[in-house]
């Protein structure tokens, strides 16, 4: 009798044990399902883009001022670093076809201009030309150092002629991203932001590949961006990394730094791109991430 009761109670206990195991499984499955459901409710993360812009150096700005065609030169040097709004970025992402999916090498986003009557436009252009001429006139007569001779003046003239020739050989500014190349006015082979667009795309793709950014960070770093200016030496190695704008997230900053360090050496600069290296600026943005 007691044995029968014991067997019965054991059976009951095993029954409850099975039920408990099933319940645990159900709770685990439900929590997993809710987690997936919650994740699906959130907006799916969009691509991370690197916006590639060119930063004009002081010299290059002055060089551009000489050329009336380089209309973008009028912008202040800090302008290339300014981040476009997410909406602008999305538009750019749609329009830029030759670049890698995650990457955009762009020139600066110019503000939309209102349509201006052509006559007014011509007048403005004429005025701008006059102003430029004045500037050129001023620059053409730099303060002569004491003891300068005719020889030095001739040497300078020769340099200028050579630089103009070099400009003519290296193609139009239309092929350049952002600003035109060369700081020959200053007599230095800076290159400035003169790296060709194809080269920029190439290095941007390399850096993008090496940029390892953990997704949890993306969730928390909406609106953050890191603007970096790097010096690419002629052999492709990165000479200097300069953070123009740091993100609040140290991890994002580190990830950018690591990506750049990992990417070095980059492909060697194309011939005639600057013997002493070129400046290239990048803006790393975890774009479009919404929490």
């Amino acid at each position: 009798m007691k044995k029968v009761q014991r067997v019965h109670s054991e059976k009951t206990f095993y029954f409850w044990l099975t039920i408990a195991a099933i319940l645990h499984l159900v709770v685990f499955s439900v929590s997993l399902f809710l987690q997936i459901l919650d994740a699906r409710r959130q907006v799916e993360p969009k691509i991370v883009s690197i916006t590639l812009v060119s930063l004009p150096t002081e010299e290059s700005v002055s060089a551009i001022e000489v050329k009336p065609s380089a209309t973008k030169a009028g912008l202040p040097p800090a302008a290339p670093v300014s981040l476009p709004s997410p909406a602008e970025k999305r538009v750019k992402a749609v329009s830029s076809t030759p670049l890698p999916a995650k990457l955009k090498a762009v020139t600066r986003a110019l503000p939309e201009k209102k349509p201006v009557p052509t006559s007014a436009k011509k007048q403005d252009l004429a005025r701008a030309l006059e102003r430029l001429k004045e500037v050129v006139g001023n620059k053409a007569q730099p303060p002569q150092p004491p003891g300068s001779t005719v020889k030095t003046a001739l040497a300078e003239l020769e340099k200028r002629v050579n630089s103009e020739k070099a400009l003519a050989v290296s193609g139009g500014s239309g092929e350049r991203a952002g600003v035109s190349s060369g700081n020959r006015v200053a007599g230095k082979e800076y290159g400035g932001s003169g790296a060709s667009l194809a080269y920029k795309k190439r290095i941007a793709a390399i850096i993008q590949d090496n940029w390892d950014l953990a997704n949890p960070l993306l969730k928390n770093s909406f609106g953050m961006s890191v603007a970096v200016r790097i010096t690419i030496l002629s052999d492709g190695s990165i000479g200097q990394i300069l953070f123009v704008k740091k993100s609040l997230s140290e991890y994002l900053n580190n990830s950018v730094k690591k990506a750049l360090e990992k990417s070095s050496p980059l492909p060697p600069l194309p011939r005639g791109e600057g013997a002493q290296g070129v400046w290239v600026a990048f803006v790393f943005t975890p774009e479009g991430i919404e929490q």
Binding site: T12, F13, W16, L17, A20, A21, L23, H24
Partner: peptide, 11 residues
């Protein structure tokens, strides 16, 4: 532990 505990509690 949890499974056995719940089973004991229920039983």
């Amino acid at each position: 532990f949890s499974i056995v505990s719940w089973a004991i509690i229920a039983f």
